[in-house]
Design a protein around this nucleic acid. Sequence first.
DNA 1: ACCTGAACACCGTTCAAGT
DNA 2: ACCTGAACACCGTTCAAGT
Lengths: 187, 187
Amino acid sequence: MTTDTRESLMSAARAAVQAHGYNALSFRELAKEIGIKSASVHYHFPTKGDLAAALASRYADDASTFLEGLLAAPQDHRSLMSAYTAVFRAALEDDNRMCLCGILSAEYDDLPEQVRVEVDRFTATNTRWLVRVLAARHPKSAPKELEGRALAIFASIEGAQLVARGRRNIHSFDEIIQAYMASGLFD
Amino acid sequence: MTTDTRESLMSAARAAVQAHGYNALSFRELAKEIGIKSASVHYHFPTKGDLAAALASRYADDASTFLEGLLAAPQDHRSLMSAYTAVFRAALEDDNRMCLCGILSAEYDDLPEQVRVEVDRFTATNTRWLVRVLAARHPKSAPKELEGRALAIFASIEGAQLVARGRRNIHSFDEIIQAYMASGLFD
DNA sequence: ACCTGAACACCGTTCAAGT
DNA sequence: ACCTGAACACCGTTCAAGT
């Protein structure tokens, strides 16, 4: 028993949502992909909202773990920010996929409350991490200012990914990130 | 005959897509809203892709007209950029809606080719305009550099809208734009 | 504990038929 | 020129029934 049905479902669903979003996620296609019937999916995840919430929750957890790891290995600011943006780049490299949180934000109006909460948590995880990174460089800056800057950096990278995806051109992502760095937005 | 069925359809569809996206757009709901049967919608727009393409095409045209108008009345750079970001802010004010192009970019994988082309055209319209605005301030800069900066500004504002929508908090949008301006990204 | 078939109200699309 | 009902293959969800 190397593969667990629930895990297979989550894995397939995560790939599907990052590519097509919440609305386009189909229990029937999902079931076909892993070889069960669509009614069986509901045994593991009663509703589509439950599945998406589980996906987003794990996604936020994974991000948290990854970001902690980044800080564990000390490096200069520019390398750190490059490692950070590389994660968003990797999603595009993976068949032009998006950050789960980004694509869910676009579909925000259609999300059950339980999913919205996890989207918020992902954003909070990212901005808190960025605040820590910025605070180390600007110890005299007001927390309010750092929070604004952190949210701006996060939003700018999400936007870079969104626009590059819409042009199905990963070079656009690199071009945009380079312009951000040149402007001093990440400093 | 003050209202035309085709126009009513486009108007209702545009509001729906900006709120819920392409996948969630329903011919049946649309038909109910304007008082015809869903089969009749196909008379005006054979497929959902045709409707979305018509929507996006007009959206790009409207943006072009608006941006030309902005340049017709000369004003300082900061006021110009404020007027530009105000359009994206207005979408959020309108029931937390998004830029049509932004939400369609998120659903890019599910879009028919005819819609993708219009998304590209909207992006091109915006970046070309931004290049003109930047070129007036930086006459010595290389076109390549200006294009990168223009695309970055556009992406950053789309990202600000996306993140603010995901937090259903328009104040976040203002906070992010302010941080962009403070960083010099818009200069 | 896990899966299934059948039913329900939805969806976009097609088409022959109406006016 | 514009609209419609009926059909088709889809969708998420529920539930009684199987093992």
